[in-house]
Design a protein around this nucleic acid. Sequence first.
DNA 1: CATGAATGAGAATTCATTCAT
DNA 2: TATGAATGAATTCTCATTCAT
Lengths: 181, 181, 181, 181
Amino acid sequence: MQLFLEEGYKNVTIRKIAEQIEYSPATIYLYFKDKDEILSTLRKMAFEKFYEFQISGHVIEDPVERLTAQGRGYFRFAVENPGYYELMFFLKEPMEKIHKPEDFVSEMDSYEILKQNVKSCIDAGRMRTNNVDATSFALWSYVHGIASLVIKRGFLMPKEQLDYLVKESFEILKNTFFIEK
Amino acid sequence: MQLFLEEGYKNVTIRKIAEQIEYSPATIYLYFKDKDEILSTLRKMAFEKFYEFQISGHVIEDPVERLTAQGRGYFRFAVENPGYYELMFFLKEPMEKIHKPEDFVSEMDSYEILKQNVKSCIDAGRMRTNNVDATSFALWSYVHGIASLVIKRGFLMPKEQLDYLVKESFEILKNTFFIEK
Amino acid sequence: MQLFLEEGYKNVTIRKIAEQIEYSPATIYLYFKDKDEILSTLRKMAFEKFYEFQISGHVIEDPVERLTAQGRGYFRFAVENPGYYELMFFLKEPMEKIHKPEDFVSEMDSYEILKQNVKSCIDAGRMRTNNVDATSFALWSYVHGIASLVIKRGFLMPKEQLDYLVKESFEILKNTFFIEK
Amino acid sequence: MQLFLEEGYKNVTIRKIAEQIEYSPATIYLYFKDKDEILSTLRKMAFEKFYEFQISGHVIEDPVERLTAQGRGYFRFAVENPGYYELMFFLKEPMEKIHKPEDFVSEMDSYEILKQNVKSCIDAGRMRTNNVDATSFALWSYVHGIASLVIKRGFLMPKEQLDYLVKESFEILKNTFFIEK
DNA sequence: CATGAATGAGAATTCATTCAT
DNA sequence: TATGAATGAATTCTCATTCAT
């Protein structure tokens, strides 16, 4: 994982992994069937770590606050762990061969939490929208979009400007989607 | 480019390019320094094609309609040309070595159009927000987020459901950001 | 052996053997010095099984019938157990290192039976030849040749044609070598 | 080929070939698609060399002499070039993937010559048999059997004894199949 | 302007074997 | 008697790149 995070997908080779962990390449095959299984495992780990981040705000009473916390957590996870995020949402490779539904469990789990939180907000009359599914998808898209641009296009502008735009975007999000108490 | 779009990034090799264009691999090096330069050029081409798509709605009078057209065009471009979109926004490779500002001209050009359109809408009192930069970034994020999820995560749900969520998300976007005439 | 017969020489690996017998690879080395010793043992087993096949017609009174039965048995064994036959007569591998005479005991035993049967036939004045050794070798060659061609080159022609040629070849063998009663 | 003949099939690796020819392994792939294509080519070469051997007695007038010459040529080729013979008749490997009929042309060509020669002998009333196909197959089997035993089992007895048995076997062959002038 | 011929570096994977426990 | 853990040495194959011509 370290290798992946520091050197990027293309540099994750069996040999480099072996070097890193100070074992022989052959040893790796005692624990993983092939390279895909390694990547697939890393992906699962990333989603699990992500899930923990996502449920951390679960205890917050106020639904809007709770949803906001989840969004904030989502964004922070993404920008603080761009490697994980890459693994989770950008990488095509390990996916192509592995379509075992179980591999997408935690991905869907996180999405479920989002939907529950959205539902709470709508039930509490705190959102301008009333369609749980659509709103959840919209919010996910929004935050995922911001995170993606920051990660992949952040270098196009100075950090301060980017931070400002992100902050304001979240402000807009709040103002446009939510109804103040 | 054809090779890239049809076979995906991983299958774009110098040899296959040479075969496709019916020249020898060595010849390619007369026109491009290395593979990165090829990818970088393809990237530029993708952005140029994208720019044309983006500018096509330029003549529309009504600012909201114009902005909406741009958004629609953006989304359609993305889902109809996932190969180009990959090249533009997901691929890390050719970026890493080349940071010549000129390579980002058309990317920024498209962004400028967006900002102009947003400004027109705000000036016409048709948006709930009033910060041009932030709103532009927010809208970009939103649409980019939807497109990204469709492209990279679309297989997680049936097509009809996905289409429905996308449609509703755009509806929400319209309702939350814009003020009806 | 099962592994050998079902998957062919190339697929007999220590690991697969270990899996099959539900022991660890290391355990195998408690019983066999190395892989060659395993193959060599299998070879011996093949020859033993072959030997049983060969003596089965031992009780037949008439010497020609007895010899014919042995030949028929030989051929049937070969085509019905091409795996064993491969192990016995085509495989070079285990031979190269091991030249212990004891490994060839049963091979020679079968050959002895052949010689005895040939001798009985000659003594009974039923063969056109009178040199026991040479005739035995000639018959062995003949039948081994047919079997080899069937096993290794059978795919070159339709099964019916092959069957026909084999049948006729044996007919010729009978007519040319033996004297009718 | 040299490598094959001297070190045997199992030792023919791309790397060793590269070493032998003093080129890099990669270069080999410029001329051959993969290892199978190399082996397949070697096989074809072996059959071509074999064919020349087979055809060499073609000018002999007397049919029995001609057929005998072919048989002698066959046997000599086999024992003098056991490597080639292995490649042609014992090796399973390269065959499995390649079943292009053209690869068996020269194999069949040699067989055709045999059949013609047998036919001449039968027509000349010089054989005890009268079925061209069956007799050809029988003769092929016989000689192939002798050759195979010599190549693969020759070490089981002293050379002189083996030579004696071979000589006598051919004598028997002559006496049992042919009719003296 | 074009390429034939070549390769160094590296990729994933497999296997027989060892040895401390 | 058994093995978990490990590996050195191979294996086939691919790719971007070079350079004399």
